[in-house]
Amino acid sequence: MTSLPQWSADFGGELAAVRSLPITELRDWALGGATGGGVRVAVVDSGIDATHPRVGGVAGWATVVSDADDPEQHRVVEEPHDDLVGHGTACAGIIRTLAPDVELWSVRVLGENLRTRGTRFLAGLRWALDNGMHVANLSLSSRSDLLYGPLHAVCDDAYFMGVPLVCAANNVPGPTYPAQYSSVISVAAREGADPWALASNPHPPVEFGATGVDVDVAWAGGGSIVATGNSFAAAHVTGMVAGMLGTHPWLTPFQVKTVLQALAENATAG
């Protein structure tokens, strides 16, 4: 029996060394003084509570709602909303901690009906790409076979548009989307208190491990709670990506992934 969640097991104990580009002092180049200023971060989730003290405000909103009269069965409403379950607020609070000057955009795709969840997820991700987001946090996933193709296509579009997608892995056996795709940055939780800690996984599809065990996160109702989940690990990496994009906005998703790998504590110069 492993001592850590499914994908986190690769980050337990002594980390295996991972060869990376021979870049010295990369951490300072990538993250030194980085605040994420000017970077638009889409939190594609259950909404964000903009009044939560850890969130520090929301720059914009989009809610994907079901609409039987619409040809695509949904429409996007760009008006303020709340957080249905607190999940998006938790992720937003973590991102703000690492990148205090980002613009947080709340893209609410999760709603009070689970049957239409997949189409809303796709539409919200598409909205983020069409509306100038620079990075998206996807601390949600699906195992639906029907969503495999459509989600894969929109994630490829994001990659070619230069928008990194940071995705939480899942703790269940079998593939989960979009964390499974090579075009995204997939993350699992690992122990530790350092929000900047990062490990590279030599055994993909999950490529990175970040802080996500017993994390003090923002919670519904303005409070906080100590929780464990890959959702929170992904949000930490999103904060790092937003930080480096603030300083180096020209970085493409594959360059971002390369920098992350070189930043990992188990990286060794090749």
Partner: peptide, 21 residues
């Protein structure tokens, strides 16, 4: 439960007492 069903993500919460809902 709603959090998990919506996100399809697992969660462990150490102390739910602070969540009044």
């Amino acid at each position: 439960a709603g959090w998990v069903a919506m996100t399809d993500q697992a969660i462990a919460v150490r102390d739910v007492a602070s969540d009044t809902r």
